[in-house]
């Protein structure tokens, strides 16, 4: 087949444009003769969500395996002063988690339960709205409310905006308070805010969040709420679930079964 110069150039141009557009669409960039690529085992979803079964999370020994696993995995410091503490996951009394139900009649022992709390990864996150540097943003692909610690300037607007107390501020260097500091995950430093990221770094390696994996009672279920066949969707279809402070319209993606 013969081809004149003009056609050759046209086709070549189209090919180049397609290649560039393809890479752009896939979000890949060229770096120093190499190229970035998504992880091979990355777990994907359209909308990550967690269902916490408070009935299963009632061990008499005051189990906190989930919290310890999370804090260990992310080099979270243990600071004794509650005004200065850092927490990605923690427990509180039912009434504190669901203050709007304080005067409602509730069945059985519900009122006495301790409830696991963490970032709700809201569909409509107020923290993201107020962040002046976009250090926190909602990942469009899977709904995780992400943190970019490189951009955080420590203004604490997000701490004020979050209605769930999910964000902690580093008032001083956290390193002396980290029990088992390891190089798998960076620590934070004085003057940045931190919170749970639904273990985004583990999902990228094909692993479930650390808390979900650590729970001995399988009380935490994690999955894609946009996929009707996922376990979380099934649970939410079959059972009545609560969300924290629904009246605020933040649309939490962490659900509680009673």
């Amino acid at each position: 087949m013969s081809m004149d110069r003009k056609t050759f150039l046209k086709l070549g141009g189209c090919g180049l444009a397609a290649a560039v557009a393809g890479n752009k669409l896939a979000g890949l960039v060229q770096i120093a003769g190499g190229q970035s690529a998504p992880g091979e085992k990355t777990l994907r979803a359209s909308r990550w969500a967690m269902v916490i079964d408070t009935r299963k999370c009632q061990r008499a020994d005051g189990c906190d395996a989930c919290i310890r696993a999370c804090h260990e995995a992310h080099n979270v410091p243990s600071i004794p002063d509650p005004r200065r503490e850092i927490k990605w996951a923690w427990k509180d009394r039912f009434e504190h988690a669901f203050p709007e139900l304080e005067t409602s009649p509730l069945p059985g022992d519900v009122r006495e339960r301790q409830v696991l709390l963490l970032c709700n990864h809201c569909a409509n996150p107020p923290c993201v709205r107020v962040c002046p540097t976009r250090a926190t943003w909602k990942r469009q692909s899977d709904g995780i409310v992400m943190m970019d610690w490189h951009r955080c300037i420590g203004c604490r607007y997000c701490v004020a905006a979050c209605p769930y107390g999910s964000r902690s501020f580093n008032w001083f260097d956290p390193r002396p308070y980290i029990r088992n500091m390891h190089a798998e995950y960076p620590t934070r430093t004085r003057g940045v805010v931190e919170k749970c990221t639904f273990c985004e770094e583990r999902l990228a390696e094909g692993r479930l969040p650390a808390c979900v994996e650590a729970c001995p009672e399988k009380a935490l279920v994690f999955g894609d709420a946009a996929d009707p066949n996922s376990e979380v969707s099934q649970l939410l279809r079959e059972q009545f679930a609560l969300r924290r402070k629904p009246e605020l319209g933040t649309e939490p993606q962490v659900f509680y079964l009673l």
Binding site: G27, Q35, G39, R139, A204
Partner: peptide, 21 residues
């Protein structure tokens, strides 16, 4: 510059693999 590009790819784009030259 490479480190900055890596950082942005991982944190902002969620790509963690790098195929080198």
């Amino acid at each position: 510059e490479l480190l900055t590009a890596w950082r942005d790819e991982v944190v902002r784009q969620g790509n963690r693999r790098f195929v080198a030259f």
